[in-house]
Computed example of a mutant assay.
Amino acid sequence: MNAQARPVDETLVRLLPKAEVHVHLEGCFDLADLLELAKAAGVGLPGPAATLFDVDTHDVPAEAPGAPKSTLSAFLRFLDWEGGLVRTPEQAARAAYRFAARESASGVRYADVIVNPTHWGAWHGRLGELFAAFAAGLDEAEQDGLAVVNLCASLLRQQTPAAAAELVDWLVEARPVRVVALSIDGDERAAGRTGPRFADAFRRAADAGIRRTVHAGESSGPQGVWDALDLLRAERIDHGVRAAEDPALLRRLVDERVPLGVCPRSNLALGLYPDRASHPLPALLAAGVAVTVNTDDPAAMGYRLEAEWAACADAYGWGLAEVAELARASVRASFAPPELAASLLADIDAFEAGRA
């Protein structure tokens, strides 16, 4: 049996050079991290330690009376609780370092990690200190031979245009180290249509040479992806799976070579689709869309990137050629420096040739 015919398992995926482009730092705290941080902060847990990541059962208050209830909104409130435990620069640097270590253990050589300052409640008014601490941790990680990681500073959909302008002003003026992109995330269904509200902020970011990646087409339909392209100048769409419902949108994604940062297991966990057979990932690939497979919030959801790629390979009949192309797509979709991207693509080619 040749290498192409062998099942794609987690070991092969770990060995395959790749990037990850849709993963949130807030979703990468392991249970031990949270227990240590909660003790240091003198904060009680929102639920039993053994079921800490079962966020639907937690006593975490809704954002406002009458706020829409959903698995996603409950999960976002849990991320607020997690981020609020980080109180010191040393803790923030350690969180970034451990993220790079987690990525490296999965064979990731480069990652764009999303950080939404609204989840880090102890740092309001100290944004520069927070991102400097993250950069320090990532610098140390790179010096130790771990994955290269850059940051995507993210808005929350419920924020105001003024808050968006404030973040973009800071990005343009301060040019924080390792911040390469502006992002926006949050529950589309709860926030309603948000593209028009943030169009000016994203335009200013684009004019200043800041890259743009936008969560869209997750809990809402294809309209969010259209807005991301038309109003927010998105270079990459995080999720984007609902684009499969609109043939015209699929053609545009293909024609403009806009990649999607898809997170299948996250979509299943948060109730978008009942199972992998129902997930539109194969349809997106068949339409010619540039698709990457990512983890979103892996620690909170209890899995790693190699497990997700192996599960997709098993569900959709992928072999070495398919996962090697998935790795290439991850690099091309990333905001990695050109020299690093070229090196990674060459390493992927060499890996595939060696295995085949």
Rank of each mutant, 00 (worst) to 15 (best):
S73Q: 15
A74N: 06
A74G: 08
L76Q: 00
L76K: 02
L79I: 07
D80S: 03
E82W: 01
E82P: 02
E82A: 01
G83M: 07
G84M: 03
G84S: 07
G84N: 08
V86Q: 03
T88H: 06
P89T: 00
A92M: 12
A92E: 00
R94S: 00
A95I: 10
A96G: 01
Y97M: 07
R98Q: 14
R98M: 09
A100S: 15
A101Q: 10
R102W: 14
E103F: 10
S106Y: 01
S106R: 00
G107V: 02
V108W: 06
Y110E: 08
A111M: 06
V113H: 08
I114F: 13
V115M: 01
P117I: 09
P117Q: 03
H119F: 07
R126N: 00
L127T: 04
L127D: 04
G128Q: 01
F131A: 12
F131G: 13
A133P: 14
G137E: 13
G137N: 12
G137C: 14
D144I: 03
V148S: 15
V149T: 14
V149N: 13
N150Y: 12
N150K: 12
L151I: 15
C152I: 13
C152F: 10
S154C: 14
L155N: 09
L155P: 05
L156H: 11
R157L: 06
